[in-house]
């Protein structure tokens, strides 16, 4: 089985390197990340994944997404939906919080939550972009001025319809 690991939530103890050594698909959390971790990731195919709703709920530091992207790395965003540290599965909130607290641009946050998210779960061939032959899975928003409005108006429900694999849900 391919690894996808929880590392560096509270302490950097070498979990990033250990995961990369085993060709992990992703390393998740990274609220604490060292320069050495960043250089290890630069020589890998491993996707760093940030979970800003967890930082929000626990009042712990946010993953330094700006530093990760500025180092030339990719970044994915996910919810960490779980009963203890993140009782929320709202990706719209994750995208907004990444912009507000991690200083990602709307373009970066949308890329992180779609195409890079698909990579982090091994489904790039079928999900993550509008591409002929990929899954008919799309969000149709309400009338909005621009896509930057989606993270800007955080907490508003701006979704009109969701189609997943061709089915309206």
């Amino acid at each position: 089985m391919i690894p996808k690991t929880h590392v560096n939530q509270f302490h950097a103890i070498g979990g990033v390197k250990a995961s990369v050594d085993h060709q992990a698909l992703s390393v998740d959390h990274l609220e604490v990340i060292t320069d050495e971790d960043i250089s290890v990731l630069k020589n890998s195919e491993t996707m760093p994944v940030a979970l800003p709703s967890c930082s929000y709920f626990l009042s712990i530091p946010y993953t330094p997404g700006r530093k990760i992207i500025d180092a030339g790395l990719p970044l994915a965003l996910a919810t960490d939906y779980n009963p203890g540290s993140t009782p929320s599965g709202n990706m719209n909130f994750v995208v907004a919080t990444a912009c507000i607290k991690m200083k990602l641009t709307p373009e970066e946050a949308i890329n992180a939550a779609t195409i890079n998210g698909a990579y982090a779960m091994g489904i790039s061939e079928t999900h993550g972009s509008i591409t002929k032959g990929k899954s008919a899975s799309v969000i149709i928003t309400k009338e909005v001025p621009s896509y930057g409005y989606l993270p800007y108006a955080f907490g508003s429900n701006l979704i009109d319809m969701v189609i997943v694999a061709g089915e309206v849900v």
Partner: peptide, 19 residues
Amino acid sequence: IDCTGKIVLPTWCDSHTHI
């Protein structure tokens, strides 16, 4: 489906949950 005024994007890929 008429999407006048609306934005369409791929659905979110949530790569880390414990639901």
